[in-house]
Computed example of a mutant assay.
Amino acid sequence: MPAEITVKAALEALNKALNQLDNEVDRQVEAGRSATEAEAELSRMIEDRGRIAQELDAAQDRSNRLEEANREVSRRLVTAMETIRAVLDR
């Protein structure tokens, strides 16, 4: 009987260890999958950041051109108003 109990206990311990190993393998596979998904998401975010940075640069360039055009229009309006005043004063 004691030999049967020892073998039975050893088999139970082996089964328990195999279940723990199986669970750990599953966790490691899931962690690897999660890491791969995180890397893919990071890659997409980096691509998005690059695209957004280009769009921002283009918008800033357009804004700068509009500001320059606004200053030029303002300068021309002032010149036209001064010319009109000079004509009216004569």
Rank of each mutant, 00 (worst) to 15 (best):
L66Y: 12
L42S: 06
E47S: 01
E55N: 04
E55A: 08
S34C: 04
Q20R: 11
E37T: 04
A31I: 00
M45D: 02
R49M: 15
D57N: 12
K8L: 15
T36G: 10
A40P: 04
R44Y: 05
L11W: 07
R27F: 11
E30T: 05
A9K: 13
Q20E: 15
L56V: 11
Q60Y: 08
A31Y: 02
Q60V: 01
A59I: 06
A58F: 12
T6A: 15
S43E: 10
R27L: 14
D22W: 10
R51T: 07
A40F: 14
N64D: 14
S34I: 01
A13L: 03
I5V: 11
D48A: 13
A35Y: 06
R44Q: 14
G32Y: 00
A53E: 14
Q20Y: 11
A35C: 00
E4R: 15
A9V: 07
R44M: 07
T6Y: 09
N23K: 08
L66C: 02
V25D: 05
Q20C: 05
R49N: 09
R51Y: 08
L11T: 04
R33V: 01
R51H: 13
D26N: 10
D48V: 03
E37Y: 12
A10L: 06
R33K: 12
N64M: 15
R49S: 11
A3S: 04
E47G: 01
A17V: 02
E37I: 02
I5S: 07
E55K: 05
R33C: 00
E30I: 02
A58G: 02
A10Q: 07
R27Y: 04
V7H: 08
V25F: 06
S63I: 06
V25A: 01
E37G: 05
L14T: 06
N19F: 07
R49D: 08
R65K: 12
L11D: 10
E30G: 07
R51F: 10
E4I: 02
E37N: 03
A35S: 14
A58H: 15
A58L: 10
Q28V: 04
E41Y: 07
A59D: 06
L56H: 07
I52K: 14
G50P: 02
E24I: 03
T36D: 10
T6C: 00
E41I: 10
L18H: 11
E39P: 05
R65E: 15
A3W: 07
N19I: 00
E12S: 14
A58I: 09
T6S: 07
D57F: 11
R65Q: 13
A38L: 15
S63V: 04
R33A: 13
L56N: 04
E4D: 11
E39Q: 13
I52E: 15
R62Q: 08
